[in-house]
C-alpha cells in the first residue's frame, strides 16, 4: 500500500501547538511562526488564554496585540483570541441587529450565564480559527498561508479540540451543529491541520505527552506526526571523556586546586549535567517509543529565551526533519 505523503510542517494551513504547562509551548509556537514568516509565508500567530506572552517574546517591549491583532514583523501577525470577543463577533454575523447583540452583551445575566456555561469558549475560539483560515485576499488566495495556534495546556488541550466533535454528537440540528461540523472537519483534515505537541524529556511531561497523543488520535482524530522535545541538554563532555564526571568524583576530597572550587563541587557539576543529559536522553526515547512518533529535539539554551535570536535557533531546528529517537538528542 502506498501511503499518501503527509504534508510538511510548512505545507499545513493550521498548526496547533500544545503541551503541559512549563514545556515552553508558547516559545515553540513563536519560533515556528517566526521561522515560517522568514520562509516567506504569511503567518498568523494566535494566542489562546488570558495572559499575552507572545508580543514580548517576538519584538522588544512588545505591547499586547489584543483581539484585533497587529503585524509584529513583516509577514507575521499576532492576535489573542478572547472567547467573549469572538462570541460578540459571531453573534453580530449571525444576528443582523447589532444593537440587540450589544444590549444582550451588556446584561450581567448573560455574562454570568456564559461564565458558567461549559464548552462554548473552546468552540467559539476554534470557530474563530476556522473563520481566519477561510479568509482570502483580493486575488482569492488565502489571507494567511499558515495559522499557528498557541493552545491551552494539555488536559485543557484535549477538551479544547474535542468540543466541536462533542457538540456535533450532542446537538441534533440548527446552525450550531452546522458550524461545529465545519470546525470538526477542519481539525480532522490531515492535509490542513497538524497538532504539534511540545514535551520535556522528563517523567511527568513524557507521560502526559504519551497520554495526550493517544487521546488525540483516538478521540479527536487530528493529525499528529511528530513530538517536539524542548530544552534537551546535549552531551556535556568532549568525545573520549565521557567518564569525566566519574574521574572527578574519584579525586580525593583534600586535592589542592588553588582558586578552583573543591573537587567535590567540580564533580557535582559534571554529575549534574551528565545526569540531566542522560535523563533527557532516556525520556526522549521514552516519548518516541510511547507515541510511535519521530521527535524533534530542541537544545536547551542556557542563556534563556531573550528574543528573536534564540527563537531563530529553535525555529531552524523545528523546520528540520524530525529524527527518530535513537539519533536524539
Amino acid at each position: 500500500m502506498v501511503a499518501e505523503r503527509e504534508p510538511s510542517l510548512l505545507e499545513r494551513r493550521l498548526v496547533i501547538v500544545t503541551g503541559k504547562g512549563g514545556t515552553g509551548k508558547t516559545t515553540v509556537a513563536a519560533a515556528l511562526a517566526l521561522a515560517a514568516s522568514r520562509a516567506g509565508k504569511r503567518v498568523l500567530l494566535a494566542e489562546v488564554g488570558r495572559a499575552e506572552q507572545l508580543p514580548r517574546l517576538l519584538v522588544p517591549n512588545g505591547e499586547p496585540v489584543g483581539y484585533a491583532g497587529r503585524e509584529l514583523l513583516p509577514g507575521l501577525r499576532a492576535m489573542r483570541i478572547d472567547p467573549f470577543d469572538a462570541l460578540a463577533e459571531y453573534l453580530t454575523l449571525q444576528v443582523p441587529a447589532r444593537r440587540l447583540v450589544n444590549l444582550v452583551f451588556r446584561s450581567r445575566g448573560f455574562r454570568q450565564l456564559m461564565e458558567a456555561s461549559p464548552g462554548w469558549r473552546e468552540l467559539i475560539t476554534l470557530g474563530k480559527v476556522w473563520h481566519l483560515e477561510q479568509l482570502t485576499d483580493a486575488d482569492g488566495a488565502p489571507l494567511y498561508d499558515l495559522i499557528v495556534v498557541d493552545a491551552p495546556a494539555t488536559g485543557h488541550g484535549v477538551t479544547f479540540l474535542d468540543v466541536p466533535r462533542v457538540v456535533v454528537s450532542a446537538v441534533h440540528a440548527g446552525p450550531l451543529r452546522r458550524h461545529a461540523s465545519l470546525v470538526a472537519e477542519m481539525i480532522q483534515d490531515r492535509k490542513r491541520t497538524l497538532l504539534l505537541p511540545v514535551a520535556l524529556a522528563e517523567e511527568l511531561p513524557a507521560r502526559e505527552t504519551a497520554a495526550l497523543v493517544a487521546r488525540l488520535r483516538e478521540d479527536v482524530g487530528v493529525a499528529v506526526d511528530r513530538v517536539v522535545v524542548n530544552a534537551v541538554i546535549g552531551a556535556p563532555f568532549p568525545p573520549g571523556l565521557e567518564q569525566l564526571d566519574r574521574d572527578l568524583a574519584a579525586l580525593p576530597a583534600e586535592t589542592a586546586l588553588g582558586s578552583l572550587p573543591p573537587a567535590s563541587a567540580l564533580a557535582a557539576c559534571a554529575a549534574y549535567l551528565a545526569s540531566r543529559h542522560a535523563l533527557n536522553r532516556e525520556y526522549t526515547g521514552e516519548i518516541a517509543r510511547a507515541t510511535g512518533l519521530p521527535v524533534v529535539p530542541l537544545r536547551y539554551l542556557a542563556g534563556g529565551i531573550g528574543g528573536a535570536a534564540e527563537l531563530q535557533i529553535l525555529g531552524d531546528a523545528l523546520l528540520g526533519e524530525p529524527r527518530p529517537a535513537e539519533a536524539a538528542p
Binding site: 563532555f237 571523556l241 572527578l248 578552583l260 572550587p261 567540580l266 557539576c269 549535567l273 542556557a302
Partner: peptide, 9 residues
C-alpha cells in the same frame, strides 16, 4: 572541560 562545565553551571 571540567572547569568549563563548572563555569557553565
Amino acid at each position: 572541560a571540567a572547569v568549563e562545565v563548572a563555569k557553565g553551571y
